[in-house]
């Protein structure tokens, strides 16, 4: 038993011993395996497009990402992706499938509020931050590069 659990100021530290520790190592391992597995599937899809269609290693990227997004959206709709997410954590959140899941889940959630104010307004509720920071980062990197090109 902790000493002075009724001490308000030390409460946040004292209750730590009651809380289950996040299994960091197991979580990393699961994320690595599931994340790697998703990427392996991506590689299979990419090879499929190169082998059967007229794509090169450079151009196969777009249809591959689109296919992964489709799969992730379907799994979200079927109620599977959130269970994968609870198991895999970052493993299923970081790849493009996680991005697709955040958009599809928001669309499903807000369907009851209508197409415009529900789905369209809330579609990027979670993914919006990724887009904002992506655009801002791209702008900054682009400007820095331009600056160096002009100067050097």
């Amino acid at each position: 038993m902790n000493k002075q659990i009724n001490d308000k100021n030390e409460y946040k530290n004292n209750v730590k011993s009651y809380q289950p520790k996040p299994p960091y190592l197991a979580n990393c391992l699961k994320a690595f395996i599931v994340g790697g597995f998703i990427c392996a599937i991506g590689q299979v899809i990419s090879n499929f497009y190169i082998y059967f269609f007229n794509f090169t290693e450079q151009t196969a990227g777009n249809p591959t990402v689109a296919t992964l997004i489709l799969f992730a959206a379907l799994l979200t709709g079927m109620g599977v992706y959130d269970k994968i997410g609870q198991f895999a954590g970052a493993g299923s959140a970081v790849p493009v499938t996680g991005f697709a899941n955040s958009i599809t889940s928001a669309a499903l959630e807000h369907k009851s509020e209508g197409v415009v104010l529900g789905i369209a307004t809330n579609l990027f509720k979670l993914a919006g931050a990724v887009i904002v920071f992506g655009v801002v980062a791209a702008y900054i990197v682009g400007m820095v590069r331009l600056l160096f090109e002009k100067l050097l």
Partner: peptide, 13 residues
């Protein structure tokens, strides 16, 4: 929290 089908990981607490 998040949309029902969002795949975020929740802690044991």
């Amino acid at each position: 929290r998040y949309p029902t089908e969002y795949g975020g990981q929740k802690p044991g607490t």
